[in-house]
Design a protein around this nucleic acid. Sequence first.
DNA 1: GATATTATACCAACCGGTTAGTTTAAACTT
DNA 2: AAGTTTAAACTAACCGGTTGGTATAATATC
Lengths: 217, 217
Amino acid sequence: MMDTASAQNRRGDTALKILAAARDVFSERGFAGTTVDEIARRAGVNKATLYYQIGDKQTLYAGVILDVMGSAADATAGDLQNAPSPEEKLRTYIRNVAAAMDRNPWMPPIMLREMAAGGRNFPEAVTRGMAQIFSILGGIIAEGVRQDVLVAAPPLLVHLMIVGAFAFFKTSAPLRERQAGTGGNWLAGEDRVSGAVATEVERLVLRALRKTPGEAG
Amino acid sequence: MMDTASAQNRRGDTALKILAAARDVFSERGFAGTTVDEIARRAGVNKATLYYQIGDKQTLYAGVILDVMGSAADATAGDLQNAPSPEEKLRTYIRNVAAAMDRNPWMPPIMLREMAAGGRNFPEAVTRGMAQIFSILGGIIAEGVRQDVLVAAPPLLVHLMIVGAFAFFKTSAPLRERQAGTGGNWLAGEDRVSGAVATEVERLVLRALRKTPGEAG
DNA sequence: GATATTATACCAACCGGTTAGTTTAAACTT
DNA sequence: AAGTTTAAACTAACCGGTTGGTATAATATC
């Protein structure tokens, strides 16, 4: 028995529980490897309720994709105008990508699997968000070139290097753990990218893009 | 009716046809998304023959993984000792990775999906190959640092940036095609990474790692 | 040299289990 | 009363794997 307030707090509670469970399972096993029964089980909900609340497996998956990938653009863009220089904006950009992946650990596996499928399941809102991200990065680089502090580079490739490094690093945690004993610096035990990993990527990307003093303009 | 020579030529032909079909389908749809019937259909072979020749789905997949990922280390290492300087070795390294992905288009999707799964399905031979790759890259960087032409950097991260950029670029081809009309430079129509893409990545990585004249040693 | 036997390669049909999705009747909530 | 949830049974399709059997050619046996 609950009072009105908690009842209203719980409005949509079941649907959220289902979506959260779906996000977990899809991110662990991918679309084809996931069973609807498993989602229902983890959500602590009867399968009929799942279909009543949301719909079929495809609809469920589309909802998860949008939820997991949808906020990427906003997360990447946030904070950016506070940075004074193009260099600082680039640092913020990279830190934002890293923070987004730490905050949203479902993103890397889902992103990797969807990219493996050619991104064909991305809803239009997601691809629009990706376009927005590139245009932001393109703007930073262009501004840096104008101010003579950065060299020109294709934003798409720069972004892919950053995101690729972070996504691979995140998903490689079990592998790195497994290989830790075999020698070589596998950075085992690291599961976050905000921090040492982001700092190193920042350093490398800035070295790559920063115009050196003697360099021709 | 065939003579002895062609009969011997065709020895193992069926198994190869099956493995090739399996490689195609697994790379398109992933393990869970692939049906054994589809592989048999594409190989032009009865399902029972598939089981007779190779074994169950897991065995088939393990064979494909080894086939597709196994040669990565050799491909990356090849040619390297011919390069005179650490910079040139780094360029060769990057070009080799790019060439391996163009020559072996099944690698990027399979790699992305396996990384999404935490690399848990990689046979030991594959992870050993990956370790070898990092150690090669680590050697190049160490040599460059010793000769005072490169700065220190974690080989793992450098490799992940390179491979991430190439793999994402390859698998994003349909996505880039789809977005070509919406403005922004999506590099649509590019499906190879050897060439312009590798050249650009080379440039960025070398800028990142090369020690600039005035830089403290 | 004609006749069995064996090994290899292959296939159509089938089997048992799984999975997405539905239905129904009852209970709980507001 | 309307909306939500449940347990449970059900189905239709699908899918991994097996079975029983055929074709062929090489080898052994007489």
